[in-house]
Simulated scan of single mutants.
Amino acid sequence: MKKHEAPLDLYPAVPFSDILEKTNVKDEERSMSKETEKIFKEVQKYIDENTDGEPTEEELNELIRKFVDDYNGQIPGPLTPDNAEDAEDYLELAYSSDNAKDALKYAKQALKLDPFNYDAEALVIEFKSTDVTKLVRDYEKAVKNATKHMDEEGYFEEENIGDFWAILETRPYMRLRRAYLDALVNCRMMRRAEEECKELLRLCENDNMGVRFVLMHIYAYFEDEAGALELSEKYGGYDNTQILLPMSVIFYKKGNYVKSRQYLKRLVSRNKDFVRFAKMLVGDSSDELDDIDVSYSYTPNTIEELVIEMQDNLYLFVDLIPYFDWALREAKKFK
């Protein structure tokens, strides 16, 4: 199976920022939004249709420049139900809809036009599920069918394992499995969630979806010191809030206060907001945490990240006020 990687990866001679600027696609962090994925697919299709054999780097650069020129001359107007044509159009309408009824309708239409549109399938599952257990079962069935299809298409060949995010066609599949992982966690099916994390990291070693952070908190939940140490070594997370905090928690739960304090000290030196966060959590001002806006994004190693970490891993932190009380007292001793 040929990998259809993003032009940024395939054609480094043409800066991705140039394409973004010329096509008016705003993506400040250059993360792969669905809009940029769509453009990359169009670039790949344009290249495939206009080349025979393996083009040279100079030919590739010229093709991309021509694509950008053509694209700029054909930028469509606003997308509406009247001018939507393909599954991607209806998926975009589903995401932009301001009510669940219309979003479900558009997602179903996208899935009708493309039965293997896993982003649309995930939306349909979310909107149709009546409880979290049904959500898990629906995702489980969808992932099973999607995996069978992806295997038949050749994406599970050995050369692709570990690089799934670099392959445009596998990203919707990875997002489907990430949603399945979230559903497992929400149902507190933690052993199954642990195995799903490991499989996602096997398929995408670079971990573009932050699965390592989910797994680290699961390890903290199970007090799995060995697993946590191996994971933090692999991804070099000793300066990351969402690695350091659960590592400190693990050793606290195991009664190893020396080790817990060592990770806590690293955390406090890295995230200057930890003390303020802990004070709010254990004091009478915990409701102030609700006023911290984390609806769109956050800056790493800030109180916003700590709030998101708490929200995403309530199963771990809900009964850990004694840890934060201890950590606050210890943090005050640090120079």
Rank of each mutant, 00 (worst) to 15 (best):
I161F: 02
Q44T: 11
R192W: 07
E230M: 13
K265T: 06
V25E: 12
D9W: 04
P322G: 14
D131T: 06
F16C: 12
E330F: 01
P300A: 15
H217L: 04
D319L: 08
K333Q: 04
L320P: 03
K253E: 09
D239S: 12
M216T: 08
K259L: 13
S248Y: 05
K45M: 05
C197L: 11
D98I: 09
D325P: 01
M32C: 09
I250Q: 07
D69R: 15
T302F: 01
V268I: 11
S97N: 07
A122K: 11
I292L: 08
F277A: 08
Y257V: 09
S248M: 09
A107Q: 07
K333T: 07
V268W: 01
E5P: 00
R178K: 15
S248K: 11
D131W: 01
V143L: 05
A142D: 03
K45D: 09
M1Y: 00
M310T: 11
Y323T: 07
Y263E: 08
V214N: 11
I125R: 03
R212A: 15
L320F: 02
G210E: 02
E304A: 10
D131E: 05
P12W: 03
E85R: 09
W165D: 05
N240I: 12
R270P: 00
I292Y: 01
Y95G: 14
N99L: 10
K22L: 14
S285W: 00
K144C: 06
M209I: 05
S269E: 02
L267F: 07
E309D: 14
L215M: 07
M280F: 03
A103R: 14
E305K: 04
M32N: 07
I250S: 07
L200Q: 09
A142R: 02
Y238R: 14
A193G: 11
L111E: 09
D151E: 12
R212K: 15
Q44Y: 06
N301F: 00
C204S: 13
G237H: 03
E159Q: 12
A327P: 01
D69W: 04
Y90R: 06
G154I: 08
V43L: 10
I47L: 06
S297H: 05
F16R: 15
Y180P: 02
L111V: 04
G283Y: 00
A13E: 10
I243S: 12
D98H: 10
C187D: 15
M189A: 14
K22F: 06
K38P: 00
E205K: 14
E199F: 10
E29S: 11
A122G: 10
A166K: 12
D284G: 13
G236T: 06
L113M: 09
Y46C: 06
V307K: 15
A94L: 02
I161V: 12
M150P: 05
L316T: 04
R192M: 15
I292V: 12
V249W: 02
S248A: 15
R192I: 13
K66Y: 04
D163M: 05
K108V: 09
G53R: 02
